[in-house]
């Protein structure tokens, strides 16, 4: 959890807005440090968290969370965290073997054209059961869905439309029905103004998700090029629906990722420059 980002977003683990869909995106840069922020943030806020870790192994997330002061293993044991390790689950489908228990959640790998229904059902079943607490388990707060790199689904053959359907269904369930939050990371490469890139997968996905979300954090490299002391800039954009129509607000920060967190500062005020 990065405290500086919390003050930018004006939220703390004790009080944060619900029903939000946060989109993390990056372009020729790496925004995955933000997903760790949100993971530890919501675990501290005692939310029931469903994490779809599609690109890294559990030990990776666990090691980083340890540095940020949250234990994923404990959260998993307590039932607070439901972790889907995409890499591990996918192996049994990519290399079929007899006698292997196959996971339903990543069933789309068998035939990506059918869509992500099974993945959605996994999310739904793991988050809807949170209201329980009947068998002495602890009561958890609002449900939260985190997806680390939804764009990897495109690489696995799912088309962008199906991914948008998936996120829409999840938003309907998690944000509206269960009054929880949702955070997704989408990564894309290429230049911003591609002439013919409009109908392509990652761009289409980014546009579609930007349309759905309520808050975006867009990470980019520095326009002036690579620098060792400033890792890039992040554009924070709020979209609020108020009485008189849509209202957007934008802020731009530069950031640097440290060993145990990240610092955010206004443009040109890096300690390396001043």
């Amino acid at each position: 959890m990065f405290t500086e980002l919390n003050s930018i977003l004006n939220s703390t683990p004790d009080s944060f807005t619900r029903k939000e869909f946060v989109l993390l995106s990056d372009r020729q840069s790496d925004a995955s440090f933000l997903i760790h922020h949100f993971l530890s943030f919501y675990l501290r806020a005692r939310c029931k968290v469903c994490f779809l870790g599609l690109v890294q192994s559990f030990s990776h997330y666990s090691a980083i969370s340890q540095r940020l002061g949250v234990s994923l293993t404990q959260a998993k044991e307590k039932g607070q965290l439901i972790f889907l390790e995409g890499l591990k689950e996918s192996l049994s489908i990519l290399i079929p073997q007899e006698g292997n228990a196959e996971s339903q959640a990543v069933d789309f790998l068998r035939d990506p054209t059918v869509g992500l229904r099974c993945l959605y059902e996994f999310v739904q079943s793991s988050l809807s059961s949170s209201g329980g607490g009947e068998d002495g388990t602890e009561e958890w707060g609002p449900p939260v869905l985190l997806v680390d790199d939804i764009s990897v689904l495109l690489s696995l053959g799912v088309n962008a439309g199906a991914v948008l359907d998936f996120s829409h269904y999840c938003r309907a369930t998690v944000c509206s029905q269960l009054q929880g939050n949702m955070v997704m990371l989408v990564r894309c490469d290429g230049e911003e103004e591609g002439d013919d890139g409009d109908d392509e997968g990652p761009e289409l996905l980014l546009k579609g998700l930007t349309h759905q979300c309520s808050l975006t954090l867009h990470v980019q490299g520095l326009p002036t090029g690579y620098c060792r002391d400033i890792h890039g800039q992040v554009e924070v954009c709020w979209r609020r629906r108020q009485g008189d129509g849509q209202h957007t607000q934008k802020k731009l920060f530069q950031y640097k990722v440290h060993d145990k967190g990240a610092s955010f500062f206004a443009r040109g005020t890096s300690s390396a420059v001043l």
């Binding site: 890499l87 996918s90 690489s155 696995l156 053959g157």
Partner: peptide, 17 residues
């Protein structure tokens, strides 16, 4: 178009374990 990326995904899954 997704053959190589799917393969690399599987390769990463194998190597990580």
């Amino acid at each position: 178009s997704h053959a190589l990326t799917t393969f690399l995904y599987g390769l990463r899954a194998l190597l990580r374990s």
